[in-house]
Amino acid sequence: MGEDKKIGLIWVDAHADNRIVETSSTPVRMVGVRLSMMAGQTLPNFRKEICGLHLPIKGEHIIASDFRIMDEPTAEALCNANILRLEASVFEDAAAWERAVKKLASEVDVIYLSVDADILKAKYIPAYEKAVPYGHDLDVVMRNIRIVMETGKIVAYSVFCIDFDHYDRGGNYTYLNGMQLVTAGLSNWEKIPL
C-alpha cells in the first residue's frame, strides 16, 4: 500500500493497549503496546522494521472502544495521541457508533479493524484467561463489526484472544463465539479498497 494512503484504525478492546515502553515504571508486555506503537508513541524501530508501518497512524484517525480497563498513564497516552475513545455507552448505541465510524471512514482511505474478544461479556468467553467485567452482548459486537465493514474501506481485520487452552472452562463455547465474530466481519467484507 502506498504511503500516501490515509490509514484509519478502529481498535475494539476492553483494555487500553497503549502503554509507553520508554516511560513505564513497570515491565510492559508486547500485547499492551500495539495501539501506542501504531500511533507512533513507542517502539518506533519495531513499528518500522518488524511491522512495516513506516509512518505512524495519526491519532485523529483512530477510534478506540471501549477501553473500560485503563489506568492513568494509558489514559494520558490516549489523550496525548489525540485518539478518539468511545465509551461503552457509545458502543452500545448503534446510531452513535455508526456516526463515529462513518466520520472516520470519510477522512481516511483504508481502515484496519481489530477486535479483542474480551470486549464481550464474560459469559461468552468462559475460557478467556481472566474474566473482564462489564462486557457487551455478542449481537452488539457483531452488529458493530458489520457497521465498520459496510464502510467498504477495510483492508485488514483481526479478531484475537479466543485462543486460550482452557477447554475445561468452556473452550469450545469461547471458540464458537470467536468464530461468530470472525464471520460477522468476513460475511460483510465485500471488497478490499486497494
Score class of each variant (00 low, 15 high):
residue 3 E to Y: 09
residue 5 K to Y: 15
residue 5 K to E: 10
residue 6 K to W: 00
residue 11 W to T: 02
residue 12 V to Q: 04
residue 13 D to M: 04
residue 14 A to C: 12
residue 16 A to R: 00
residue 17 D to W: 11
residue 18 N to M: 12
residue 21 V to G: 01
residue 23 T to M: 08
residue 24 S to C: 09
residue 25 S to K: 14
residue 27 P to L: 10
residue 28 V to F: 08
residue 28 V to G: 08
residue 29 R to L: 11
residue 31 V to E: 11
residue 31 V to A: 11
residue 32 G to C: 12
residue 32 G to R: 03
residue 33 V to A: 12
residue 33 V to D: 03
residue 35 L to K: 01
residue 37 M to G: 03
residue 38 M to G: 00
residue 40 G to H: 04
residue 40 G to C: 11
residue 41 Q to N: 13
residue 42 T to K: 11
residue 45 N to F: 07
residue 45 N to W: 07
residue 46 F to T: 15
residue 46 F to S: 13
residue 51 C to S: 09
residue 53 L to Q: 14
residue 54 H to F: 06
residue 55 L to E: 15
residue 55 L to Y: 06
residue 56 P to Q: 13
residue 57 I to M: 05
residue 58 K to I: 00
residue 59 G to K: 03
residue 62 I to F: 02
residue 66 D to V: 06
residue 71 D to T: 06
residue 71 D to E: 14
residue 71 D to L: 06
residue 71 D to I: 09
residue 72 E to M: 08
residue 76 E to K: 15
residue 77 A to D: 04
residue 79 C to Q: 14
residue 79 C to N: 14
residue 80 N to I: 01
residue 81 A to C: 10
residue 81 A to W: 01
residue 83 I to N: 02
residue 85 R to Q: 13
residue 86 L to P: 09
residue 89 S to W: 07
residue 91 F to S: 13
residue 97 W to M: 14
residue 97 W to L: 04
residue 99 R to H: 10
residue 100 A to V: 07
residue 101 V to L: 02
residue 103 K to N: 11
residue 109 D to N: 13
residue 109 D to T: 10
residue 111 I to E: 11
residue 111 I to F: 09
residue 112 Y to S: 13
residue 112 Y to G: 06
residue 112 Y to W: 12
residue 114 S to G: 08
residue 116 D to N: 12
residue 117 A to I: 00
residue 118 D to T: 05
residue 120 L to T: 02
residue 123 K to I: 10
residue 123 K to Q: 13
residue 124 Y to H: 14
residue 125 I to S: 05
residue 125 I to F: 05
residue 127 A to K: 06
residue 127 A to C: 09
residue 127 A to Y: 05
residue 131 A to K: 11
residue 133 P to T: 01
residue 135 G to W: 06
residue 137 D to A: 15
residue 137 D to M: 06
residue 137 D to Y: 08
residue 137 D to T: 04
residue 140 V to G: 05
residue 141 V to F: 04
residue 143 R to E: 14
residue 144 N to W: 03
residue 145 I to W: 08
residue 146 R to G: 10
residue 146 R to C: 05
residue 146 R to F: 00
residue 149 M to A: 05
residue 153 K to W: 09
residue 155 V to Y: 10
residue 156 A to E: 01
residue 156 A to F: 14
residue 162 I to L: 07
residue 162 I to K: 01
residue 163 D to C: 12
residue 163 D to W: 01
residue 165 D to C: 03
residue 166 H to S: 13
residue 171 G to A: 06
residue 172 N to T: 05
residue 173 Y to R: 06
residue 173 Y to V: 13
residue 173 Y to F: 11
residue 174 T to W: 02
residue 177 N to P: 11
residue 180 Q to S: 07
residue 180 Q to D: 07
residue 183 T to Y: 13
residue 186 L to K: 06
residue 186 L to Y: 03
residue 188 N to C: 13
residue 192 I to W: 03
residue 194 L to Q: 08
residue 194 L to R: 10
residue 194 L to D: 04
